[in-house]
Design a protein around this nucleic acid. Structure first.
Lengths: 194, 194
DNA sequence: GTCTATATCTCGATAGAC
DNA sequence: GTCTATCGAGATATAGAC
């Protein structure tokens, strides 16, 4: 019988504590001792799961990336027409980010750190595949302008990042937020298609 | 007579070494001892100019920001019509970034770190004033769509960041690069005006 | 797998001569 | 202002009992 422990999953606790502390204090200001303490595990336990602090940082990065991909996979319907999938990818990325601000912040923090270089480009490429394929489809269907897919991907991503920052700073109501997201997508779509 | 020492300016050396090491190894991986060594000054000298490591990080941030502002101020002509100034701000921001990659990277690294919170929002606001005013002007002249200036600023900034990343990854020739920047601005401009 | 205890080291920061 | 010398604290990581 497979062990289905009802006790706390220490590994998840460690990742959760690491997320909280890295976001609040940065990689520099969050010692492993404190991460272990806040996760409610012994110091040695942390190093049992992650051989080094950096390994923990990278594992956390991957964990969050998976979370994000899973959300998109289950909120974007592969049967929908291209434009709808495009719109949903955009909207749902923003929704996920707004509902997981710590995680989204961590991704950015990690991305602009020397630790990113420890993640193989291969793996990073893999993560964008979903989006790049959608863009290629859009180009093939003559919906999108004939721009390099990488450029389109970059511009869309930036649009998401920028809009996210704007919405966080503005602190709108949920309804207003939805409207701004929708309008912004329209602008982006026009830019890429007309 | 004002002292015009011809000997090395230690403070500048420290900032230059800090930039190099922070970019390569991150805040966590760049000890003050090594920064001092690489700057060719004694450990104590570093702490004479900057009381703490964080103070050094913040000073470096401001130093780079000033550099960037200075570049824009001297490359965007206040007498030009709005659209030209808009375009020049965009193009020159990218040119500066591409020619000062370390500095641009540092700004981003700092921006997504908890240390940013040590810089007063007042000061950050001040840094965007130049751009926001230009946007307000564009709105008043009915050139730009009637969108919130903060939103426009955010979208333009993101566009610059994204395009920068694309160009760095692509490694085009100078001529090709110029063309992509120009075309991208056209797309952005259409999005914000039509 | 998990804990306690601890080794080893390095870092940021200070003191004080020059 | 600049240097040498050094302190004390706290960091990552390991060893070994349970």
């Amino acid at each position: 019988m497979i062990s289905q422990s009802t006790t706390a999953d220490k590994q998840k606790d460690i990742l959760a504590a690491a997320l909280r502390l890295f976001v609040e204090f940065g990689f520099h200001g969050a010692p492993t001792s404190r991460i272990a303490a806040e996760a409610g595990v012994a110091n040695g336990t942390l190093f049992h799961y992650y051989k080094t602090k950096e390994e923990l940082m990278i594992a956390l990065y991957h964990d969050i990336k998976e979370d994000m991909s899973g959300w998109l996979a289950s909120n974007v319907n592969e049967k929908d027409p291209i434009e709808k999938r495009f719109r949903e990818s955009f909207v749902q990325s923003l929704q996920w980010a707004l509902q997981h601000r710590d995680k989204f912040y961590y991704i950015q923090q990690f991305h602009f750190s020397p630790h990113l270089s420890k993640v193989s480009p291969q793996v990073i490429r893999e993560q964008t595949k979903f989006h790049v394929q959608l863009i290629e489809e859009g180009k093939a269907a003559k919906l999108l302008k004939p721009l390099p897919a990488d450029l389109v991907f970059t511009l869309v991503s930036s649009h998401v990042f920028g809009l996210y920052q704007y919405l966080v700073d503005a602190g709108f109501s949920a309804a207003r937020q939805k409207k701004v997201i929708s309008d912004s997508f329209e602008m982006l779509w026009d830019m890429l298609t007309k």
